[in-house]
Design a protein around this nucleic acid. Sequence first.
DNA 1: GTAACTTTGTTTCATCTTTCACATATCAAC
DNA 2: GTTGATATGTGAAAGATGAAACAAAGTTAC
Lengths: 219, 219
Amino acid sequence: MANETMKIPQATAKRLPLYYRFLKNLHSSGKQRVSSAELSEAVKVDSATIRRDFSYFGALGKKGYGYNVNYLLTFFRKTLDQDELTKVALIGVGNLGTAFLNYNFYKNNNTRIELAFDVDSDKVDTKIGDVPIFHLDDLEEKVVAENIQVAILTVPSVHAQTITDRLVASNIKAILNFTPARLNIPASIRVHHIDLAVELQSLVYFLKHYPMNQENESE
Amino acid sequence: MANETMKIPQATAKRLPLYYRFLKNLHSSGKQRVSSAELSEAVKVDSATIRRDFSYFGALGKKGYGYNVNYLLTFFRKTLDQDELTKVALIGVGNLGTAFLNYNFYKNNNTRIELAFDVDSDKVDTKIGDVPIFHLDDLEEKVVAENIQVAILTVPSVHAQTITDRLVASNIKAILNFTPARLNIPASIRVHHIDLAVELQSLVYFLKHYPMNQENESE
DNA sequence: GTAACTTTGTTTCATCTTTCACATATCAAC
DNA sequence: GTTGATATGTGAAAGATGAAACAAAGTTAC
């Protein structure tokens, strides 16, 4: 049962970009069709889960055949808004920030880091890849002017809240927060936290307290 | 109902390091007691969820009073094995790897990055922080000799599977995988994936397809 | 064209997770 | 002490997720 206006489960939504990437791989390796079982092997998600995920969007496959790679790819491109660009700013050009800037998000993607900010005068007014680095003082001005919708926060955690407040005032819509700080933010703005220390610690906790004989899942 | 041998829900286990960190903050700011409501405000987790999480470990609080910060902190330190060191190796000293090496995991923590590996001769035989960088050729030898249990994988994704196979052969127990590759790995080894591109893409998907008036969660 | 095979889409079930709501215990003040 | 305020711990309900299983539909081979 498909319905354009229907809400997809969050768990499914989180897997969509993963499916999309593997479909691109399949496509560029010349594959015409793929079954949920093959895809399952590649992305390490149960095949029933994959079929269920796809079914939220309607009957995308054919019984006894599988899925047409091209069709799926086209469909997901639309669904994931691959044709519509989301503008991103990155705040904090340290090692982690630089890693992001070097990451090829813009290649075949719907997100582009347009601006970066830092306070280090050695970095301000330089570029990494194609991304110009501005001084943090110019944050509001540039973000508003460029109509940036998403911010990646890779600054020291003490500055996270202050900068967040400034981003909120600049009409940002979502934040990808890599600092350990838990941000105070209006409910209308979406935040995803990725806390590197917590990831490592919880991995260690699982390692020590859980039996080690079953598959495990990520983030 | 508490029981040392009881399995804690995974969702709870993932929040423990977060609680622990905020309790440390409270402690160092001199706070003696804390309620689940206050903690909820700080870590952005529903207060009922916090009470439920804590209750898996027994009755840690007092009705009408809340939780004693010191007691909780001591309890969690034991529970999270803060006194027992887990040795970690980092593979791939690019920007992301360097970010990790500069991160102060070892400060008050139960995990230490002991070794790093890379193929770049400019990096091999140098150090970042206290962590010596070796050539990838020496991976097996060093990992076995140092009895490394966890690996952080921050290499280009084409090399992820090959290196993973070598880590498995070297008796690694868990991998924190930052590459987009989905690893083929024995069921006995724990893997957590953190896929930066997927995180950004799924944030954008939520942004565009979900109503923006409720709190959201991370990782 | 028919039979055997393949693989989807969906129904159903089993878990896991979060949240509500409140009885119960403790604290604090007088 | 007694009273009122406070905040826990938990039973029960609601919600979300994952996986098994299978009928139905389409494919492939002959």
